[in-house]
């Protein structure tokens, strides 16, 4: 990694639901600009890791700091302002709104107009809309989402909706991007396109990314480092080549999968 300053520092996070331990003493670090993949069998706790960083779940113990700021004490909306953006495993778009409006919502925390200036429109609110919409159009172009106009996104194909979610996350101008199974349910062509976009985000935008994905070849191709989870515990963290050689990983995960 060219830049090895730690951006996200997670220590001893444990999360349980009733008697069930979703995460047990999970610790890891993500550096600036790194693409850090999280893999593991179903129910291993991958999505729970995201939900903790987003302050949607409150772990019983541990700490998670983004550039020194504790995330676990925050509320979900605060994490957006701090620069954490995510996509969801199951689509969570604003289905009745257009692509641009979905992206604009990603920029909600960067906008200022309110209950008086918005309705009045002329002046500040209008300028803000124009500038920000232009920016969203650029992001839409970047992800090849430009030709869907004012269609409600709920009517668009699944693969496109997945990409719009990525666009909405990018529109937040994040420092840390969380992608939860971005290619799940996609065909080969869509998967390759998305892989290309993930690479572009990493190489050209330099945004640190946490990637949860079941598709192993994709993970091994893209990731700088991989963390393997099983039953809420960290089995191994390392570069893709190391992970592929790791005995325990084979036992709990790769062995079972192939």
């Amino acid at each position: 990694m060219a830049n090895s300053k730690v951006l996200l520092d997670v220590k001893d996070v444990s999360l349980s639901f009733g008697g069930l331990d979703a995460l047990k003493n999970v610790s890891y670090q993500v550096t600036e600009g790194e693409l850090f993949a999280v893999i593991g069998p179903n129910g291993a706790g991958k999505t729970s890791i995201f939900n903790c960083l987003n302050a949607v779940y409150k772990p019983q113990t541990g700490s998670a700091k983004l550039d020194g700021v504790e995330l676990l004490d925050l509320r979900p909306a605060d994490t957006a302002e701090l620069g954490i953006a995510r996509t969801f495993q199951n689509l969570a778009l604003f289905t009745n709104l257009s692509v641009i409006d979905n992206l604009m919502l990603g920029r909600h925390h960067l906008l200022r107009s309110g209950p008086i200036s918005g309705p009045l429109w002329w002046g500040k609110a209008r300028r803000e809309e124009e500038v920000q919409r232009r920016r969203c159009a650029e992001i839409a172009d970047f992800l090849d989402l430009a030709d869907h106009g004012s269609m409600p996104v709920g009517a668009l194909p699944y693969g496109v909706q997945k990409r719009i979610e990525m666009g909405r996350a990018l529109a937040m101008e994040p420092r840390l991007l969380l992608l939860d199974e971005p290619v799940a349910g996609m065909n080969q062509e869509e998967t390759e396109e998305t892989a290309h976009h993930i690479l572009q985000i990493r190489r050209e935008l330099g945004i640190a990314t946490l990637l949860v994905e079941h598709q192993m070849d994709l993970v091994m191709d893209l990731a700088d480092r991989v963390m393997v989870l099983d039953f809420g515990q960290v089995v191994a963290i390392g570069e893709p080549a190391e992970i592929q050689r790791n005995e325990r990983v084979h036992q709990v995960y790769l062995g079972g999968a192939s």
Binding site: V56, L97, H108
Partner: peptide, 10 residues
């Protein structure tokens, strides 16, 4: 449309 998603985008 999606209150949980609305919250995490701020």
């Amino acid at each position: 449309d999606r209150d949980a998603a609305a919250e995490v985008i701020g």
